[in-house]
Amino acid sequence: MTSQNSKTSNRWLQPRRVTVIAMHTFTQLVRMKVFYFLSVFALIVIAANFLDLPQFNGPEAIGVGELQMLKSTCMGVMKLFAVVFVIAATALLLPKDVEDRTLYTILAKPVPRLDYLVGKIAGVLLLVFVSLLLMDLLMTVVLSFRTNHLLVDQLSWAEARGWTQEAIDSERRDIIAQGPTWSFQGAVFAIFLQSAIIGAVALLLSTFSTSTLFTIILSFLIYLIGHFQADAADYYKATAEAGSNAFTTTMTKLLSLIFPNFQLFNVIDAVIEGIPMTMNAIISLTGLSLFYVVLYTMLSWFVFSDKEF
């Protein structure tokens, strides 16, 4: 009795097998009722929408500010969700498989360990992606509704005041720039990219840490360091000229080598302020994120490949 599979190859990264594990992880998370969070998000968006801001300085300034507030609140919540979720899910799933011995049954099948890791992280990222997509959709609908409303309001006000056509056009341009633009979608994608990196970091940590809590805390710490290290490097560079000690300078250099520079993702804030996202920026950030995700996944594999259970 020869098994039909003995002839199929068990090389690494067989797409079908990775997909099976990824989809399974996705289902697992969905059935953990993760999407309930989305209803909370919907509430926040709606609440932010009805939040009236203090009127001041005449209408030429509020319009833009209102949209900015709506965007920054929603983007903030999206980012919060993406980062918290990706860290918690990645840090929980691997130890859970070990603890429940489900990992034994998976690795006892002809499944290379790399496929297992890639499948897990892909499943988590898929869920983050889908969640962000849904939130983005809701956000875009609310924002475009709000923008149109504002446009009608402001322009009729301006016309009533007898503004020149040029002034009205300028106003219109300013409002539209704050509405749902492609740049805005780009910024949501940047949130995804950033959470992909931090997810890969959590994966790496969870391959050698023995405690879920440790993984979660350390991942958040790395997230913070990632934001800080560029500032710190600039700061110490500035003070180094004034003669600060060599130790701190070396340390910050090391930090900036090891940890990802999350400051680059502050483009999200710029987009909220209405600065257009360039295609070039999206491509560079995607490339960089891909580099990090591949790097950290490979390192995870390096640790995981001969791990014993």
């Binding site: 680059l264 483009v267 710029a270 070039n280 920026a281 560079s284």
Partner: peptide, 22 residues
């Protein structure tokens, strides 16, 4: 890190040029 750092610096400069990064 030695590979990515110059790369990150280049991206950072690009983003600053496009006003996407302060």
């Amino acid at each position: 890190g030695t590979v990515k750092k110059p790369w990150e610096a280049a991206i950072g400069a690009d983003l600053r040029h496009d006003k996407l990064l302060s």
